[in-house]
Design a protein around this nucleic acid. Structure first.
Length: 457
RNA sequence: GUCCCCAUCGUCUAGCCCGGUUAGGACACCACCCUUUCACGGUGAGAACCGGGGUUCGAAUCCCCGUGGGGACGCCA
């Protein structure tokens, strides 16, 4: 165990989004890479906007993504409590220290942090008012990702609201001191705040932690950073849609970081081994759901059968796919394993396998028009139905041989029977291997569907 | 408006630190191959160093200035 301590400090004011998840991930990866400690701290000082529901979404999402925390709500630790709403006594003590050191004063009912230096007044164009500024030397931030950054922090700022509640900048710093955080890894949107934080650390006489400001994730379309309202921004949405969490972690790790070579799909253990702060990019990255979907597909393809079946069933249960009752266990498994190599994600399953579970499946008109317009599909179907009557449906190969023999007898190919057979039996032109599909459906149903199809034409 | 950060294919990026590459990979797109549909897979094509100045024999790489993008300027976090 190293003495590196990092923290992820979300505020439960909305659903957990991709950008927050990536910040959490980089902290977690760094902790695991260095053998350090990953602390989860809840910044719930904004009483108006906080909610327990949002808090639970954060816990669930972190767990789902496999980011376990070493200290924090639920697991405890030596530096608790880990919810800011429960740390009032600690903040009061630190605020007193600031008063004692002459670095805090009251004004308009609020408490302000006092900068040291000569004061002067100037008009602020942006805020349209006269403000008091202080002549100070620039604050230097040594950022592990950006390098040396200088920023002038030249205005006193509020640290305790007039209602007595401490503001973010203050509690953030106090907690980082009290929790002995050594590395602050957070989004670049905080870079401008960092000068405030550094001044506070100094005023408390505490060591300034290392900072690492990671690039932001920009929305897929249009300007600006990704926000909770953007399409595809919510972690729980991917969970709901049956995404493989490892795939999302893998994808997120590649947004602003890379292993230094061409590898993309990597087990998390490998990402942990390779991850380091200096390797993080400095420029913002645009979110690309197609690339995420592709990454997810590669994970789905490699899932062990039992695992795939379990995830699919969980998805069906969550979405009420079989509201009328779950199908037979073994039958469902056969259908799923037939589909696994073909789909892009778990969410495709209900649509892809619909006709396995009902006789009332829809007919894809476009596909039908195309197939019925070529050759003599009805005759082919008649021939096929006749040939299949005596075939043993317990084996893909036997079915395949039968169709091939029929085709050979008629001087045709397998393909001449396939598309019309698939259309008649499944109502579509896409699907799993035809003979596998026949086997799973069973001879009676296949024949009945062909007959019904013929009757309709 | 002020301050801070950033800048390679449409997108994610390698290369930059320590100047010399046909500027590489992936997603997406297109074509072809494989094939029992659709996918997967394979092969190939198109596609980028933001602009201008320097420094240098030589600049994607180092410096400066523009421009563009992003962020911060709350008694939000």
């Amino acid at each position: 165990m190293s003495n590196i301590r990092v923290r992820f400090a979300p505020s439960p004011t909305g659903f957990f989004h991709i950008g927050s998840a990536r910040t959490a991930l980089f902290n977690w990866l760094y902790a695991r890479h260095t053998g350090g400690t990953f602390v989860l701290r809840i910044e719930d000082t904004d009483k108006e906007r906080n909610s327990e529901d949002f808090l639970n979404v954060i816990y669930d999402s972190l767990k789902w993504l496999g980011m376990n925390w070493d200290e924090g709500p639920g697991v405890g630790g030596d530096y608790g409590p880990y919810r800011q709403s429960e740390r009032d006594a600690i903040y009061k003590e630190y605020i007193r220290k600031l008063f004692d050191a002459g670095r805090a004063y009251e004004k308009d009912g609020a408490v302000w942090f006092k900068l040291l230096g000569e004061r002067y007044e100037t008009f602020d164009d942006h805020r349209k008012k006269t403000v008091e500024k202080v002549k100070v030397a620039p604050t230097v931030i040594d950022d592990l990702i950006r390098g040396r950054v200088e920023r002038v922090e030249d205005e006193d700022f509020v640290i305790v609201r007039s209602d007595g509640s401490p503001v973010f900048h203050l509690v953030n710093v106090i907690d980082d001191i009290a929790m002995k955080i050594t590395h602050v890894i957070r989004g670049e949107d905080h870079l401008s705040n960092t000068s405030k934080h550094v001044e506070l650390f100094k005023a408390f006489g505490a060591p300034v932690p290392h900072f690492a400001h990671i690039p932001l994730i920009l929305k897929q379309n249009g300007p600006g950073k990704m926000s909770k309202r953007d399409q595809g921004a919510l972690v729980e949405e991917y969970q709901r849609r049956g995404y493989i969490p490892e795939a999302l972690v893998n994808f997120l790790s590649l947004l602003g970081w890379n292993p230094g070579d061409d590898r993309e799909k990597m087990p998390v253990a490998e990402i942990i081994r390779l991850f380091d702060l200096p390797g993080v990019n400095q420029s913002n990255a645009r979110f690309d759901d197609k690339k995420l979907a592709h990454m997810n597909m590669t994970y789905v393809l490699e899932l062990p059968p039992d695992d795939f079946v379990a995830r699919a069933k969980a998805y069906f249960a969550r979405h009420g796919t079989f509201a009328a009752g779950m199908p037979d266990e073994n039958y469902l498994r056969e259908v799923l394993l037939l589909s696994q190599p073909k789909i892009k994600g778990i969410e495709d399953l209900p649509g892809y396998t619909e006709y396995f579970f009902t006789e009332n499946f829809s007919l894809n008109e476009k596909a039908a028009a195309k197939i019925m317009g070529k050759g003599d599909p009805k005759t082919r179907l008649l021939e096929l139905a006749d040939a299949l009557k005596t075939v043993d449906f317990s084996n893909d190969l036997v079915i395949e041989e039968a169709i091939k023999k029929l085709a050979a007898d008629k001087g045709l190919g397998f393909g001449d029977y396939q598309s019309i057979a698939r259309l008649a039996v499944s109502g579509t032109n896409v699907g799993p291997n035809l003979t596998g599909m026949f086997r799973v459906l069973g001879r009676d149903r296949v024949l009945a569907r062909i007959e019904r199809f013929l009757a309709r034409q």
